[in-house]
Design a protein around this nucleic acid. Structure first.
Ligand SMILES: [Mn+2]
Ligand SMILES: [Mn+2]
Ligand SMILES: [Mn+2]
Ligand SMILES: [Mn+2]
Lengths: 163, 163
DNA sequence: GATGATATATAGCCAGTGCTATGAAATCGC
DNA sequence: GCGATTTCATAGCACTGGCTATATATCATC
């Protein structure tokens, strides 16, 4: 039991009062979900950006998407192909990319969430610059329940004086 | 070639009243930072978990880390090698892994941040389960400034009656 | 309608992060 | 001490998401 070595570290294999933390399964489950979110967040940023560009510029071109994301054009090209395969967008070469109804829906949901998260941070006193940056990453890990809590807070703020 | 265009969509190149949004550079910068965060978040989870296991169980073994993270053991093995190379941990085969001072520092910072984020969500009315999960992903994208805002909110709550 | 600029496609490299299968080493129980 | 169990290491595969370099296609302009 407790002499795997007899160096420093006096084998703290005390009876192990079980979990002052969580059990391994719940712990793992949380990480699993986070890993899933990591897999989808890039798609979310893409469709949201595409919707934004279409709304503002009338079109979403590969080169502009690349510029906005700060990545190289081939990176975008490959990703767009995947998004098209997955049914989020439709590509019309030299005409830009367009959102399918599914893509639209995802973009709308992401945009709403993004707005709430960023607005929430600002309402909390975070500077615009930092709120924008933090929201960009946080948004993808904010569940609907948390989003509701953010929205509630925003509503409260609004009532009690905006600033 | 089959006329890939002159279909619907009448070239919407209206004068483009510039940016009702942000300029491309700032936009890209935000995404860049988020990508950086994505690169480090896994390390953060590892060192935090290792510190937690050492504190609670007295040791942090590969198999236990794998169980906690919900990944396979070789996945952990490779990551630990990287963490050792990067100076965060020290491996003693069949004795567990230990944190270097640098690793300790990172773990402490991550743990503090994690606690604040999760506590903040709960204070906001999010359920324990969801707070735990959302915090696991959000934490890595919360800047110090935002963390301060969270902490301020928590302090305020504490004064005005905890529940 | 030729041409130069721009936009897109494609190939191939690299690193990261997951996996399974399997072999080697250490520890534990006896 | 020895066999069984546990722990770790390693090889190899798949997929993602960066990159550069380069070829091709379209557009714009004259
Ligand atoms: Mn967004
Ligand atoms: Mn984002
Ligand atoms: Mn954490
Ligand atoms: Mn985490």
């Amino acid at each position: 039991m407790d002499r795997p070595h007899d160096m420093t570290q006096p084998a703290p294999t005390s009876p192990k009062r079980d979990t002052p933390g969580i059990d391994a399964e719940s712990h793992a489950e949380g990480f699993q979900k986070t890993r899933n979110a990591r897999r989808t967040e890039l798609c979310e940023d893409y469709v949201e950006l595409i919707a934004e560009l279409i709304g503002r510029e009338g079109e979403a071109r590969q080169v502009e998407i690349a510029r906005r994301l700060g990545v190289a054009q081939p990176t975008v090209a490959r990703m767009l192909k995947r998004l098209a395969e997955d049914g989020y967008i439709q590509q019309r070469p030299y005409r830009g990319v367009f959102l399918t109804p599914i893509g639209e829906a995802l973009a709308a949901a992401c945009h709403r969430r993004h707005e709430i998260v960023e607005g929430f941070l600002r309402a909390l006193g975070v500077s615009d610059e930092v709120a924008r940056h933090d929201a960009e990453g946080m948004e993808h890990h904010v569940s609907e329940e948390t989003l509701q809590a953010f929205a509630r807070f925003l509503d409260g703020q609004q009532d009690t004086g905006t600033r």
